[in-house]
Design a protein around this nucleic acid. Structure first.
Lengths: 147, 147
DNA sequence: TTGAAAATATTGAATATTCAAGAATTGAAG
DNA sequence: CTTCAATTCTTGAATATTCAATATTTTCAA
């Protein structure tokens, strides 16, 4: 009898595929909410990271918001035009640029946060409290184990 | 005393962010393996879906491999140039195009499958059998509950 | 049967992302 | 000190993706 082999297993059983599918779906829902303010998900992430009021370098930001460096530069250019954030040269290391959130950025960020909370609550309802926190735990540990 | 509010929670605690991060990491690893054959992840998915030998319409494929329609068309154009797949007009509904995998495509798909299995095994080792299957179960159910 | 609406796939222009190279600054070895 | 390698960010060209419009075929109501 044939040994059960993974080589023929349908793509829908692969972890990589399930992650892509779930990510796509949740992201789509979030995008839909944030589009009420005309803001892409990445910009919300940027604002959220900067909303601690501290300066964050481009490299740091790129890692935090899951964008590569040149893409981030260009997105930040747009956000600077929209006066949501601003650049300051790091006085301690002039290779670096420190990004700060503006007052306008803070106001927008608050609105976006509440839209995002709406979504999380919607997930909690349809998916369940228990499952959600368990899923988060497992994802964190997967990310950990991948470094 | 302050009511604990989600509005200030760091971005790293949002389900959408954890999914994006995990997806990014696992996808990066898979990309790295498949790059040995010079094939992007999406093309492997396409080959895998087509490897049942049946014809699949573009719309069906687009859904299955998580690409939107025009992007898929252009990727298929490249794969046709590489003689990995070919188009046949659906005789029953001539609006549709049925995609088939070629012999060359099948050979490549086998190699890619084994590279992908390598990765899944690597995950099983570092992350654990139990966690992996539990994570898959939760992801499937999240995807279900989102429809 | 006919004609309007829906479904399917492709195309081209607009937009976004990525890769490779460049500019500026720092670190550190000799 | 001086110089060379490493770090950080930006830029421009190449590539890829997306949006809107188009072409073709089917469906279905009148």
């Amino acid at each position: 009898m044939a040994k059960p082999s993974k080589e023929n297993s349908p793509i829908t059983e692969h972890l990589a595929y399930l992650l892509a599918q779930a990510n796509r779906e949740i992201n789509r829902q979030l995008e839909l909410r944030l589009s009420k303010e005309g803001v892409p998900v990445e910009q919300w992430r940027i604002l959220k990271v900067l909303s601690d009021g501290n300066g964050h370098s481009m490299g740091e930001l790129a890692g935090a918001v899951l964008l590569n460096h040149p893409t981030l530069t260009k997105m930040i250019d747009r956000m600077v035009s929209d006066t949501l954030v601003y650049r300051v040269q790091d006085p301690n290391d002039r290779r670096k640029v420190l990004m700060f959130i503006s007052d306008r950025g803070k106001v927008l960020c608050k609105k976006l946060n509440s839209l995002a909370v709406d979504q999380e609550e919607h997930i909690l309802e349809s998916y369940g409290d228990k499952s959600t926190s368990e899923l988060k735990r497992l994802l964190e540990s997967l990310i950990d184990s991948s470094n």
